[in-house]
Amino acid sequence: MNPALLLIADSRLPAGGHAHSGGVERAVASGAVHDVPSLSRFLRGRLHTAGALAAALTSAAALQASCTPISPAPDTTEAGTRDVTEAPPATEGGAEGGDDRESPWVRLDDEVDARTAAPAQREASRTQGRLLLRVARRVWPSSVLDELARTVPDPHHPIALGVAAHAAGATPEEAALAAAYHAISGPATAAVRLLGLDPVAVHALLAAFTPDLTAVAAQAHFAATSAYPAPHLAPRWEALPAYSAPALDLLAEQHAQAEIRLFVS
């Protein structure tokens, strides 16, 4: 395992994740989540739907990034400031011509959109993706992150996560594992804060989920490799899963309308 994965999966990564509850705040408000067992059911459902989807998309993004060779960011010392609005030269990541609509990042981002039904979920995903991208560009500067920022400034979170993991040196399967963990660790922490649950009991719960995390990441990675059969072949998007969790979608929409809330999502 690449140690950089620890940094990417750490809830202390300063990328704004602490302000997202993944639907838990609304589930707590409705009474559906009220103790450790009900939290466990919520997390299991989330991991095997939204989490499994995010893991597959993250792995796909990492695989796509690995088709683009990493090069260090342009030297910034001389100019004093780096004009980040200036686009780096386009990479040859399968894009034909200079049209951004043809960029593989725009295409993959569209695939994530198509698999994220609720507008509130899309918004939350893009917000987290944008913040993660910003942090990753400073922590692991690379041309593929710059290219992503240029073509999709507000990428979905799984895309930012997959590319950041790649830039940090992690494999696509490791990226999928980070995504699966992210799908439950943030909501678990939010529940601790909202309900005053025993943090040790909640961590024991997370520990009990580790075999599921491994399984979800492996399946996700398998789907992603089927979608990218070979670097020179066009991606087979239909190989990527499209799980949905209507309850999470509803919670997200209700949350976006709520007058009183502590978490962004």
Binding site: P14, H18, R130, L131, L262, V264
Partner: peptide, 21 residues
Amino acid sequence: AVETGCCPHTAIRDDIAANLD
């Protein structure tokens, strides 16, 4: 306005991403 997920001090000190944004 920025939402801080129960942790106003985190949002200005440890994880400033949303505020910077």
